[in-house]
Amino acid sequence: MSLEGGCRCGGVRYELASDDLPLTYACHCLDCQTWSGSAFALHAIVAQNALSIEGSVHDFRLPEGQEARPSDHIGCAVCLTRIVNRNEALPNMLVLRVGTLDRSRDVSPAVHIWTRQKQEWLTIDDSTPTFEVSPTPAEFAAALSG
């Protein structure tokens, strides 16, 4: 079985080889707030070889110094929806924008990061792991595995 998703205009579609919805995290950093135009962004780390993307894809990288960790961003060349990004910190993995999944309404964040910068009006359930900044890889993996 697989999961499907795509951009806003339908020009890019993808298939994620997975029977289950990916474990998702909400990032509340100011960059994610600005990029998403919302209070946070929903992401999932997926294996690069599990995702196949078709359509009018556009790849770009922000100029040096504009991201804490330079990333290659992949999205729609028409509507500019970002689908995934990749960076050297996660070899053979992609960071999927979970809001692009067709079943995004079925997803709930398992972890919240960068809560130090979250919007004050937003309440996070006490049972959901939170980190004021980015957790270490070990802390993040432990929180996602629940």
Rank of each mutant, 00 (worst) to 15 (best):
R103I: 07
F140E: 13
P70C: 08
L122R: 15
E139I: 07
V84F: 00
G99D: 03
P137K: 05
N92Q: 14
D126Q: 14
H112P: 10
W114G: 09
T130C: 05
L94T: 00
P70H: 02
T115W: 08
L94M: 00
L90H: 05
T81K: 06
Q117I: 01
V133Q: 15
P70F: 00
E139A: 09
E139K: 03
W121A: 14
R69I: 11
R116D: 13
S108M: 15
S71R: 09
A138F: 02
A142V: 11
R105L: 15
S104E: 11
V107M: 05
T81F: 05
P135I: 03
R86H: 00
T81M: 01
L94E: 00
H73Y: 05
F131A: 05
V111R: 07
T123C: 11
L101G: 04
H112A: 08
R82G: 11
V84I: 14
V107F: 08
R86N: 01
C79V: 03
G75K: 00
T136A: 02
W121D: 10
Q119S: 14
C76F: 02
T100D: 03
E132N: 14
E88K: 01
N85D: 05
E88Q: 12
A77S: 13
V111F: 02
V78R: 12
L122G: 06
D106F: 15
P137W: 05
L90F: 07
A89L: 12
R82Y: 01
T115E: 13
N85P: 11
A89Y: 01
L94K: 00
A77F: 01
A141Y: 12
R86W: 00
P109C: 07
R116W: 07
R82P: 12
V98E: 11
P135A: 04
F131E: 10
L80G: 15
S134Q: 10
L101F: 09
S71G: 15
N87C: 00
R103F: 09
R97Q: 11
